[in-house]
Write a protein that binds this DNA or RNA. Structure first.
Lengths: 323, 323
DNA sequence: GCGGTTTCAGCAACCGCTTTCAAAAACATT
DNA sequence: AATGTTTTTGAAAGCGGTTGCTGAAACCGC
């Protein structure tokens, strides 16, 4: 284990000087700088972050909190975060806090505190009151992605408006009986906002809203489609709460020999990975996940202000046609 | 910031004692233990891992090296790792090293060394000679997932055998003209092994192998299908190198109005997330990713021996029929 | 109640790096 | 050449735990 002492000895200076050179904190001559740097390189010096963090009382590590990785949108966000972090010498401590698992979330928070992370990025994590209080007490900066966390900045699209736009898009294309599927209307954030946007778009037309609740999953989409299709008057288009759900709907359609979009149009949400995978490719409301991740980490680390809302747009593929 | 000193003062003992109690390293009475623990809880004591790691010269953090998260199989592996880690008080430092990006891999290794991680888990990361040497020099234990890293334990399925089994499965079902698609035969590990397995299975039958190279991606699958279908004698079945590629093949089939599996059978590889998403559901050679992740981290942390090979199996859905 | 053993707790050094303060060296000014 | 100013370097304390060593206290059998 080579330490700054070793370098100091070889260079004929004191550890203080080595430290100053290595941190570029000024107060050394060009000559010593060169010598120190050279010897450090020769010796393959590797700074002990623990020691450094100890005196700094912080670290260049940020904690990333996710519910779990196997959600279609987590991966691109993580990629976005990671790339930015790499370019800025920031490290990422990953922790899964599960879905609404207060105990595990607390454990994660403790972990972050113990590791003296310099900030936390939470991806779609809902904070209960206790953990929110704990978080406040820790005094760590946090940026939340996708979900509003009281008292902390959030990066998210405007779900209400996005749902409105999506619904409007279907209307403009001539669809009339439009269902909203696989959404959780009890979810105070995303779910409700999207329901509202959907209803607002329909209101003007006098059409009746039709919401099939669900948990955004493939299964939820599949079940919703099944249920809708067995009704007396099936919808012409289904606005899915996620691309996964949209895939479920398409799957159902395929299994019934229904042509998409001719007999049933499907509009997805997310523009995730799966949108390209299913046939036909999903027309979907895009959330720029990677970019959101970058934005979030940048705001967290640089303390730059966050845009109020992230731009979304409709990514057109082939699951919606004209009617 | 509450430290063991604060606890010590309140409890009327010295920091040493507090430390011993907190670490359960023995040498204290039941009375002091209770008092210390109680006060620690009252004060919301949070151990400073940096300080602890400094003296221990190690940490309960393990580094997880991935190329990037947006690969269909990375997520379940990470989930598997994370769950195990959580249960064992291990933390995860995540780093992306890109695909064959030696500079970035080196940066990751440096990072791991600096953070004094207790071990490294690399997921499908190929080590070049220089970085391999660096790794050896660091002296850190490593377990590799999916790819063989010279001198370190690996958890992976037997690709040769798996490909053999998959091909055999198709043969048994009556398919004769079987192509292997979207595979990289120059990849010394996985790719080659699978090609061999495929060829070995065909050899006995006297059938001619037909390999369409590719990079395991959806696009590669799509292109391969296209190419194969435009040939004079299209195959009856395609064995895809990944589920992503299989999805691409199915996508192509759908776009051409080819029924799967009636007109074209598709066998996937991985049993990833997407196998359930496309229609028809993919029959595929399953790799138990989450389990592999757990196995790997367990081997890394507990230094338990690794099974030579992980069990794979064919997960039947509906993209392969009978002929 | 006494020597001997075991248990419990304190002292102090240390992990590797950073940073303040003071001293020394280099340089500039008259 | 003497003084003042700035730059460069060193000494030392400390970040918050951990741990070997030592002494004190508690417990043991006789």
């Amino acid at each position: 284990m080579v330490t700054i002492k070793d370098i100091a000895k070889q260079a004929g200076v004191t550890p203080s000087t080595v430290s100053r050179v290595l941190n570029q904190s000024g107060g050394y001559s060009d000559k010593t700088r060169q010598k120190v740097l050279q010897i450090a390189a020769e010796l393959h010096y590797q700074k002990n972050e623990a020691a450094s963090n100890l005196v700094a009382q912080t670290s260049n590590v940020i904690g990333v909190l996710i519910t779990n990785a196997t959600t279609s949108f987590a991966a691109p966000i993580i990629d976005g975060i990671e790339d930015w972090a790499y370019q800025h010498g920031i490290r990422i401590l990953l922790a899964h806090c599960g879905l609404n698992d207060a105990a595990r979330l607390k454990a994660c928070l403790d972990l972050m505190a113990g590791q003296k992370v310099s900030g936390i990025l939470s991806i779609s994590v809902q904070f209960d009151a206790t953990n929110l209080a704990l978080l406040k007490q820790l005094g760590l900066p946090l940026v939340s992605l996708g979900v509003k966390v009281d008292g902390y900045p959030t990066v998210a699209i405007d779900d209400e408006k996005a749902a409105y736009t999506g619904t409007k898009y279907l209307l403009n294309r001539g669809y009339r009986r439009i269902a909203l599927a696989a959404i959780d209307p009890t979810d105070p954030q995303t779910g409700q906002a999207r329901c509202h946007g959907y209803q607002r778009a329909l209101q003007k037309t006098g059409l009746a809203p039709l919401i099939i609740p669900g948990d955004y999953s493939f299964q939820a989409g599949y079940q919703a489609a099944k249920q809708l299709w067995q009704a007396a008057l099936p919808p012409e288009a289904i606005f899915a709460a996620s691309d996964d759900a949209a895939a479920g709907i398409v799957f159902y359609a395929q299994s019934q020999g229904l042509a998409v979009p001719e007999q049933l149009a499907v509009l997805g949400f997310d523009n995730s990975y799966v949108a390209d995978l299913v046939y036909p490719g999903l027309t979907t409301v895009e959330q720029p996940f990677a970019q959101m991740g970058q934005l979030a980490i940048e705001a967290l680390v640089m303390k730059t202000p966050l845009p109020d809302q992230v731009a979304y747009q409709i990514k057109e593929r082939h699951s919606v046609g004209w009617r």
